[in-house]
Every structure is written in structure tokens, then in C-alpha cells.
């Protein structure tokens, strides 16, 4: 009886192209004046015994059409969503349009780290000139002109002046202008006539000085071990190997235990278990006298390290010249 009506309705629903069309169709079928609604209204006109049956059939028809519309709506909504998404589509697997941020130079990166370690121990960063006179660079540091120790400081000269061979002159300048207690580190560029895989004619040094009453070797040992552990790792130990510098007495080379073998000896440390990282010592009384400090009242320790060497050990860099070549591919690692 309503077969044709049902077939037509379902066919039209199936053919609906978009949500708008479907909504119109729903109104046309199930709206107040919709075809099916109109049919329902005619039930009352049927003979009484037919009414329940017709009512049931029509009700089922109405529900079926409603379900079909719902199903179609969902399907159309999916299609619409897909269309929308195609319009908005960005391939997020493409590389990002990157704004490249630059890189710190490895020497500066290590230097910053060294500074932070000592500053947090109470040291202050002080700088000074690169062009020095030989009094500040040598004589004040208990290294008179004909001292053989000058052999290790082959200097560049500019008439009467020279390029500092270490940043120790900054210590002298600081002591001349301030009274103890003093705790400073002095980073900066220094110059020596040497150029190969382990020497640059210009390199970066950090020197440190601590002057107070009753400063001892035990204090030096604590400070430098702390430093070594902060920069290389908590497991590291240091040892003080007696050495000689004209401006300290006693003097030491400070070795750190090898990070590869832990001190047992391997190729990385030349089978000694130790790597030399810095020079240190107790400030020589003559240095104090030269700056007008009373060596009876004040004692102190000083140390000096090459930032290049520390960086090479930390990052396993073999050729010191890489630092001044500035190959972009090298710099991008830092």
C-alpha cells in the first residue's frame, strides 16, 4: 500500500547531495505538511478495522525514513568534514620552516661554564688588557728577565710592550688596586709563539686567585677538585703533582682522573690514568711583596688553565686549530 511511497522516499534520501538538500527532504517527508505526515493524517479516514494495521505500517515507514535520514546525515556530515579538512590540509610531515638560531662558540661555552662554577663559589670575574708591559707580565710575577722560565712564555713584542702570555697580569692589577680578601678569576685571550695541533699562538685562559688569612694547600685542593667535578663529572678526582712556576711556591700541575678508564690507564690518558688540566700553587711571597701585601699576614692560591684544553678534553676534540677555523659544521655542535 505504501510501498511506492517508501521506495520513493528512500530513493530521494539516498540521492541527497548535501545536508541542505537532506533537510529540505526531511521537511518534505516528515514535516508538518510532509508526505508521510499527510498520510498519517488520513488514517482517521480509514475503516476502523484497518486503522491499526495501517497505523502500524505507516509508523514503521516513518521510523524507517527517519533512520535513513539520520544515516544519510551522518554520512553527509562526514563528507563535509572531509571536504573542509582537505581545504585546511597542511602536510605536517614536511620540515618546519625553521628560523635557525646561532651557536655559541665552544670556547665561549666552556668559558661560561667555568665562570659560573667559580662565581658560585664566591669568585668574581675580572678582565684586563691584552697589551701589557713586561713588569706586569713577568717581573711582578717573580720572573726576572733572565729567568729560564721565560722560555715557556715565548712572547710577541710590540716595541716596549708585549702581548700578555697569561692573564696573571690581571691578578697583579687587581692586587694593586684592592686589599684582601680577594677571590677573582680572570678570563681572556693570551698569546705565545707556538702553532700546531696542540698549540695556538692565541688562546684563552682562565686564571684564579684567592688571597685571605690562612689560605692553605688544603683549600686549593678542595676548590680545584670541586671545579673538576663540576666541569667533568662527579666521579672525577684530582691529584696535585709538584711542579714549578716562578709565581707560586709550592707549585702544582693538577691532573684529573681519566673519564674513559676511571684512572686505570687507557689510550685516552696515555695509560697513566690521569689528564693534566691546569697549573696551580700557593702565591709566592715575592709576588705579594711586589704588590705591597704583607706575606706574613696574607697567603693565597692561584691557578691557571687553558680553556681550549678543557674544551678538548670535555668534547674529545683532537685538533686545537679547529677552534679558530670556525667551520660552521663544527660550530653547530655547540
Amino acid at each position: 500500500m505504501f510501498e511506492q511511497l517508501k521506495k520513493d522516499a528512500l530513493q530521494k534520501i539516498e540521492n541527497a547531495n548535501d545536508l541542505e538538500q537532506l533537510e529540505k527532504l526531511r521537511v518534505a517527508l516528515l514535516g508538518k505538511k510532509g508526505t508521510i505526515t499527510e498520510q498519517v493524517k488520513t488514517i482517521g479516514t480509514l475503516p476502523a478495522q484497518e486503522r491499526p494495521k495501517a497505523g502500524k505500517i505507516l509508523n514503521e515507514l516513518k521510523q524507517e525514513v527517519q533512520r535513513a535520514i539520520e544515516a544519510k546525515r551522518e554520512s553527509l556530515q562526514r563528507v563535509e568534514a572531509e571536504k573542509l579538512s582537505a581545504k585546511m590540509w597542511v602536510d605536517v610531515t614536511l620540515p618546519g620552516a625553521r628560523r635557525r638560531v646561532g651557536h655559541r662558540h665552544p670556547i665561549m661555552k666552556t668559558l661560561e661554564e667555568i665562570e659560573i662554577i667559580f662565581v658560585s663559589m664566591g669568585f668574581k670575574v675580572v678582565e684586563g688588557p691584552e697589551i701589557e708591559d713586561s713588569w706586569h707580565n713577568f717581573d711582578a710575577l717573580n720572573t726576572p728577565e733572565w729567568h729560564p722560565a721565560r722560555d715557556e712564555h715565548d712572547s710577541f713584542y710590540l716595541d716596549d710592550l708585549l702581548l700578555r702570555t697569561h692573564t696573571s697580569p690581571v691578578q697583579i692589577r687587581t692586587m694593586l688596586s684592592e686589599q684582601p680578601p680577594i677571590a677573582i678569576i680572570s678570563p681572556g685571550r693570551v698569546y705565545r709563539r707556538d702553532y700546531d695541533a696542540t698549540h695556538l699562538p692565541m688562546f684563552t685562559q682562565v686564571e684564579g686567585l684567592y688571597v685571605d688569612e690562612n689560605v692553605s694547600v688544603a683549600h686549593l685542593k678542595y676548590t680545584l677538585e670541586k671545579f673538576a667535578q663540576e666541569i667533568f663529572g662527579k666521579q672525577r678526582r684530582i691529584r696535585l703533582r709538584p711542579s714549578f712556576f716562578p709565581f707560586t711556591e709550592p707549585s702544582f700541575e693538577v691532573d684529573v682522573s681519566c673519564g674513559v678508564c676511571g684512572g686505570k690507564g687507557c689510550q685516552a690518558c696515555g695509560y697513566s690514568g690521569w689528564l693534566e688540566i691546569l697549573g696551580a700553587g700557593m702565591v709566592h711571597p715575592n709576588v705579594f711583596r711586589n704588590v705591597g701585601y704583607d706575606p706574613e699576614k696574607w697567603t693565597g692560591f692561584a691557578f691557571g688553565m687553558g680553556v681550549e684544553r678543557i674544551t678538548m678534553l670535555k668534547y674529545n676534540i683532537k685538533d686545537m686549530r679547529d677552534f679558530v677555523r670556525n667551520d660552521k659544521r663544527f660550530l653547530e655542535n655547540f
Binding site: F123, K124, Y210, P242
Partner: peptide
Amino acid sequence: EDIIEEVGRIYGYEKIDPQAPKITASGKGW
């Protein structure tokens, strides 16, 4: 001091226990 070094190096610096200094110097780090 030269003699102190002689004693220290033969005695052995490894026998000296590290001791934290009480740094009282003032001034900001940088």
C-alpha cells in the same frame, strides 16, 4: 716556602685532606 714545598712533595700531597675555603671576598660575579 721553598722548604715547605720540599716537605710537601716528599710527604705526599695526596695525604692532605681537601678543606672548603670560606670565601668572604665581596662583589658580584660579573
